[in-house]
Amino acid sequence: MPPFSDYIVYVDESGDHSLVSINQQNPVFVLSFCIFEKAAYYEVVVPAVQKLKFEFWGHDCAVLHSHEIRKARGDFNILLNANTRASFIDRLNGVIGALPMTIIAAAIDKQRHVKRYSDPMNPYEIALKFCMERLQRWLQDQSQADHLTHVIVERRGDAEDQKLELEFRRVADGRNQVGRMPNLDIRFMTKKHNSTGLQIADLTAHPIARHVIKSNQPNRAYDLIEPKFRRGPAGQVAGYGLKVFP
């Protein structure tokens, strides 16, 4: 077994990957890979998020979830109070903006995808391959490609998880534009584990989707994470940190 890398990756999605019934208001599927240096993760990232939770709930049981935050549901019913909501969003933005991480994401425009291809592939599988290719190139740049890097994904159900793991293994075995990736391993985690990394990945995926759908609209959450995208030699995000397809 190769030595462990200095990095860990947390993954979440926004939107669904169904091509049968496409939501006209949200026709984009996004997969977001959030990469953390392990030392920074346990020394800086986790304490910052835990501190936020203790400030607003007095405990750290609340699981940050972008949909529930927007709808003020569950633990986030405290956000029905306008002053509390403004204070929470300001603090959350401050935490997210300061987090040391690198983002690699892929966005699949399902409407264009269906129109362009007679037999369109599953958006999740396409996005996964794009993100894994860019992650591997990023790890090569960090001289970490010969070290084992874990990719942590939220558990969704046995059938879906098995299908995702099979596709992950296929890509890692060489079905990609980079080559074999024996250094990447997938792990599944449930919400009950209250993973800080998975919660941050969730908070990045939705703003990316909104940016792709309506890039001309103000998007404060996207503006906060935009500097964290992997970049090309000339500083470009498109194709390097964010792949939009087709």
Score class of each variant (00 low, 15 high):
114 V>W: 00
77 N>D: 14
45 V>F: 05
81 N>Y: 02
185 D>I: 12
166 L>P: 04
134 R>D: 00
171 V>Y: 08
214 K>V: 10
86 A>H: 09
231 R>V: 05
150 H>T: 14
55 E>C: 11
12 D>Y: 06
13 E>D: 13
84 T>F: 05
15 G>S: 05
219 N>K: 06
77 N>V: 14
115 K>S: 11
68 E>H: 15
85 R>E: 13
53 K>T: 08
98 A>M: 12
46 V>E: 13
170 R>P: 00
151 V>N: 02
28 V>M: 02
208 I>Q: 07
126 I>S: 00
32 S>P: 09
65 H>Q: 10
118 S>D: 15
171 V>W: 06
97 G>K: 13
190 T>Y: 05
45 V>Y: 03
79 L>T: 03
191 K>F: 10
204 T>L: 15
181 M>K: 05
197 G>S: 08
111 Q>H: 12
208 I>P: 04
103 I>K: 10
128 L>I: 03
13 E>S: 02
20 V>H: 15
47 P>Y: 08
76 F>Y: 10
57 W>N: 02
25 Q>H: 14
226 E>N: 07
188 F>Q: 03
149 T>F: 01
231 R>N: 09
165 E>K: 11
145 A>Q: 08
80 L>Q: 12
66 S>M: 14
175 R>K: 13
95 V>Y: 08
84 T>D: 07
130 F>L: 08
161 D>H: 08
73 R>E: 13
155 R>H: 06
114 V>Y: 02
74 G>T: 08
154 E>V: 07
231 R>F: 01
219 N>I: 03
115 K>I: 08
137 R>C: 00
163 K>L: 14
48 A>P: 07
179 G>N: 11
55 E>K: 15
28 V>D: 04
83 N>Q: 15
134 R>W: 02
78 I>W: 11
151 V>R: 03
228 K>D: 00
62 A>Q: 04
146 D>H: 10
230 R>G: 00
169 R>W: 10
158 D>F: 13
45 V>N: 02
88 F>H: 09
245 F>W: 12
242 L>T: 02
201 A>N: 12
87 S>H: 01
64 L>Y: 11
169 R>V: 12
27 P>D: 10
157 G>W: 05
103 I>Q: 05
144 Q>S: 01
45 V>E: 02
89 I>S: 14
125 E>S: 07
54 F>P: 01
201 A>D: 09
